[in-house]
Design a protein around this nucleic acid. Sequence first.
DNA 1: TAGATTGTTAATCGATTAACAATC
DNA 2: TAGATTGTTAATCGATTAACAATC
Lengths: 228, 228
Amino acid sequence: MSYQERKGILRFPKATFERLKLYHAFLSQIHAEGKIYVLSEDIAEMLRITPEQVRKDFSFLETKGKPKVGYVIKELLDELDELFGTGVDENIIIIGAGHLGSALVNYKGFKNIGVRVAAIFDNDPRKIGTMVGDLMVLPLKDLSRVIRRFKVKIAAICVPESAAQQVADLLVGHGIKALWNFSTRILDVPPNIIVQNEDITRGLLGVKHMLAESEKSSSIDAMKVNEG
Amino acid sequence: MSYQERKGILRFPKATFERLKLYHAFLSQIHAEGKIYVLSEDIAEMLRITPEQVRKDFSFLETKGKPKVGYVIKELLDELDELFGTGVDENIIIIGAGHLGSALVNYKGFKNIGVRVAAIFDNDPRKIGTMVGDLMVLPLKDLSRVIRRFKVKIAAICVPESAAQQVADLLVGHGIKALWNFSTRILDVPPNIIVQNEDITRGLLGVKHMLAESEKSSSIDAMKVNEG
DNA sequence: TAGATTGTTAATCGATTAACAATC
DNA sequence: TAGATTGTTAATCGATTAACAATC
């Protein structure tokens, strides 16, 4: 029985799921460094959580550790890879060929999580036809064709805030299921559409706040914040 | 008594603080559209939470609403602006003049949250001296001078994963207090250093997972995920 | 074996939801 | 006034932490 099938039954607490993504990142890292085993203590230290939390989270997985030895990194990683479907490639499109859109096209990390950029779009005639990385910038009229051809379900919105809602409407109209929103705009879309807000200013607001706090009191814990 | 002073006493639950950032974004939006009042119901709908949650969160603020009228948008916004210190400018630096670093330099949203990019650095001789937006790419040897001169506390890490830890060590060595980490690397830094992980692949992992879930069951709620 | 580490259950803590009185 | 909406307290739910037995 695969994870896909089991998932309906075996559910993770939301908080656990968020941390599983971090474990995945850290485990990939130390696996690449050639490490074989890892202790809950090692993971906890890097992620600034407790070892108990790590073990509790892992108790939702099938991988088991050995007392005094820890967990086999590869085993955890394989289970998480299957859980996150990093092997199953998903085609995404990017709307907006500005700085951010271009950065995404050239982003190297997608292959690790089973994501591929199928196309990039813009409505500026001066950008259409130019190359961004390996891709030629397409006009929005090609949207429908590309979405159908590559079975695209996820679209990244990299347009100015003023155009974000309009673009979201257009994408939803063409059957896009999930919006990866890099604009600061809070999007208004039907409830069945997944929205992942990636507005980076929000992270910085938190940092500014923590800095202000730490300047007053020197005893600060839990200052490592992770997205997710 | 200002918020800065009060903050030590008046604490927000962490979950509330995260939502306050979203309220701030949404309120900015409708304020710009010229709206004067807002109901907890309106906010809840856009943010995919409940009106009760909104009112509960607002109960930690000083701004009060009026039954049947709602909240004065400007009043909420002013309080949140003060709370987040969006008026107090903070200088940040960017390490890595690749696609992402350049996108950040050109990012328009910083001014809304009181952040200014003071400089961008790279160690590639071919990039040093070139212009990125209004800034000239500086060599890392200028780091110390710039940090002191602009009282920089926050640094964005936009270098490849392989260089991220090294860059983090360098920055911490120069007195940087908060790392805004765009690499996929989980950084190992002293506990008094604030780390905000902005690795975007993590958001996409969640989206892929939700898509897989929604393909099995059609009754899905809580699918709008916000960074924080 | 003794000591270290895992895995799990129980206790605590924090966050959300429900209920409802107050008020416009 | 009646109805809608806020603000707050109490009840529920979920997540973290503590405790500790199992095991290598």
